Amino acid sequence: MPFRRFANDAAIRRIGEGLLARTLPKGEWTHEAHLGATLWLIRDRPEVDVDAQIAAIISAYNESVGGVNDDAQGYHDTITRCFVAGIRLHLADRMPDESLADAVNALLASPAGQRDWPLRFYSQERLFSVVARRAFVPPDLTPLPVVSG
């Protein structure tokens, strides 16, 4: 499926900063924006503990634009943490001086950037369960990739 490429680093930083400040227009919170903002947080914002804070960051943003985080909509912990694992795997193979836009666009073109990437690890029943939305559940098909060292 085609994806919207980011033209430059500033476009990604604007989305990430808008997420943190809860000022990003709701219509701009796309799949690409989710991945771009999360890669930016992991790579360029070391003061943000993504593992500890991502649920609160995204949930608060959702609520700020009128969204609801409940059993059927809004923040999904297992999907988010699956993509975080994919982003870390992707970054492990990138050059440290690569531009942010190049890193994000390469992620979006890779298997880890595809919308259905979590289904490589999870059955639909498990991934789309209320339990998986509310808290991380381990995969039932194959383990998530882990970046060592």
Score class of each variant (00 low, 15 high):
Asp71Trp: 10
Asn62Trp: 09
Asp70Met: 05
Glu17Pro: 06
Val130Asn: 10
Glu125Thr: 15
Glu28Tyr: 00
Leu41Asp: 01
Val130Phe: 08
Asp93Lys: 13
Met1Leu: 13
Phe121Met: 11
Thr80Met: 09
Ala101His: 10
Pro96Asn: 01
Arg45Ile: 07
Asp77Ser: 14
Ala106Trp: 01
Gln124His: 14
Gln53Leu: 09
Ile79Pro: 08
Val65Arg: 07
Tyr75Lys: 06
Ala10Leu: 15
Arg22Ile: 02
Ile79Gln: 10
Thr30Asn: 13
Leu141Ser: 07
Gly74Cys: 07
Arg13Val: 14
Ala37Thr: 00
Gln53Val: 01
Asp93His: 12
Pro25Thr: 03
Glu32Thr: 05
Met1Ala: 13
Lys26Trp: 04
Glu28Ser: 05
Phe3Pro: 06
Ala109Gln: 10
Ala72Phe: 14
Arg5Trp: 11
Ser123Phe: 11
Ile58Asp: 08
Leu107Tyr: 05
Met1Ile: 09
Gly16Ser: 14
Arg94Lys: 08
Gln114Tyr: 05
Glu63Ile: 13
Arg94Val: 03
Asp44Gly: 07
Asp71Thr: 12
Pro46Lys: 13
Trp29Met: 12
Asp51Ile: 00
Asp44Glu: 15
Glu98Pro: 00
Thr142Val: 14
Asp51Ser: 12
Ser123Asn: 10
Val65Ile: 14
Leu24Lys: 04
Pro111Lys: 10
Ala52Phe: 00
Val48Asn: 00
Ala11Gly: 11
Ala37Gln: 03
Thr38Ser: 11
Ala85Met: 01
Asp102Ala: 14
Leu100Ala: 11
Asp77Glu: 14
Ala135Pro: 02
Ala52His: 01
Ala7Val: 11
Ile15Gly: 04
Val137Pro: 03
Gly149Thr: 11
Ala21Phe: 08
Trp40Glu: 02
Leu91Trp: 03
Ala37Phe: 02
Leu39Pro: 04
Leu20Cys: 08
Ile87Trp: 03
Ala60His: 08
Ser110Lys: 05
Ser110Trp: 00
Thr78Gly: 06
Glu63Met: 07
Thr142Trp: 07
Ala106Gln: 12
Phe3Arg: 09
Leu89Met: 12
Ile54Thr: 00
Gly74Arg: 10
Ala56Ile: 02
Arg134Met: 13
Gln73Glu: 13
Ala11Asn: 01
Asp49Met: 01
Arg88Asn: 02
Gly67Met: 04
